[in-house]
Design a protein around this nucleic acid. Structure first.
Length: 208
DNA sequence: GACCAGATTGTCT
DNA sequence: GACAATCTGGTCA
């Protein structure tokens, strides 16, 4: 179970702290690198699915044409304008979901896109959802990890500080690399992607 | 391994 | 009507 605050130590997940809302109450560019090494946890009817975050991207409120909220609030991106510490889940290309952690103060639309995980718990359920056996194919992409963890549009706007969804703190990777973002056509030269340089679970190889 | 095209649908102009 | 923060399978070197 997800336990807020003090460690209680049962299944390994509850023995670590869920990141509080205050953690997200900063710029996405400050939050993003600190999410590396943390554990994304989703409690599903199938059991707990969890993975260590190895790749993230920041989307900023100002001077970032790649941000969905760049042109103002719409029905789709409204969650980004809400309070920090919530999940912004959107559908891309008509068939894939992507998960963001909303950051910054309410009214300032910034978010961190979770791009890749290292599978840790619930791996058999992930294999069933993904219909793939290979560990590297389970969560090495923003849409892959949503499918593997059973995250869909129903969780858009859900809190990240209480079940069924949460991120718990973990050890920082020893080597972090900062690069340009993947797949964006606007503002593509800014370095707003952070990777655990030693992880084999990245969605794309590290490039300059 | 690298590259390319197709799938598929909500959102925005 | 065009585009999109992607994935997958097929082809080729």
């Amino acid at each position: 179970m997800l336990t807020k605050g003090t460690p209680s130590g049962h299944d390994g997940l509850s023995s670590t702290e869920v990141l509080p809302q205050a953690f997200y109450d900063r710029s996405a560019s400050a939050v993003a690198p600190e999410l590396l090494g943390c554990m994304l946890v989703h409690e599903t009817p199938d059991g707990v699915a969890a993975g260590r975050i190895v790749e993230v991207e920041a989307y900023l409120a100002s001077n970032d044409a790649a941000n969905h909220a760049h042109r103002g609030m719409t029905e789709r991106n409204a969650v980004m304008f809400g309070p920090p510490g919530h999940a912004y889940v959107y559908l891309i290309y008509g068939m894939h979901y992507c998960l963001n952690a909303v950051c910054c103060a309410e009214g300032v639309p910034e978010a961190v896109l979770i791009r890749a995980l290292e599978p840790v718990e619930g791996i058999e359920a992930m294999r069933r959802r993904r219909r793939r056996a290979e560990l590297k194919d389970l969560t090495s992409g923003p849409a892959k990890l949503c499918q593997a963890l059973g995250i869909s549009g129903e969780l858009n706007g859900a809190g990240l500080t209480a079940p069924p969804l949460g991120i718990v703190s973990g050890p920082r990777p020893t080597s972090i690399t900062r690069t340009t973002r993947v797949g964006v056509s606007a503002a593509k030269d800014v370095l707003l992607r952070w990777c655990d340089a030693g992880s084999p679970f990245l969605s794309r190889p590290i490039r300059k």
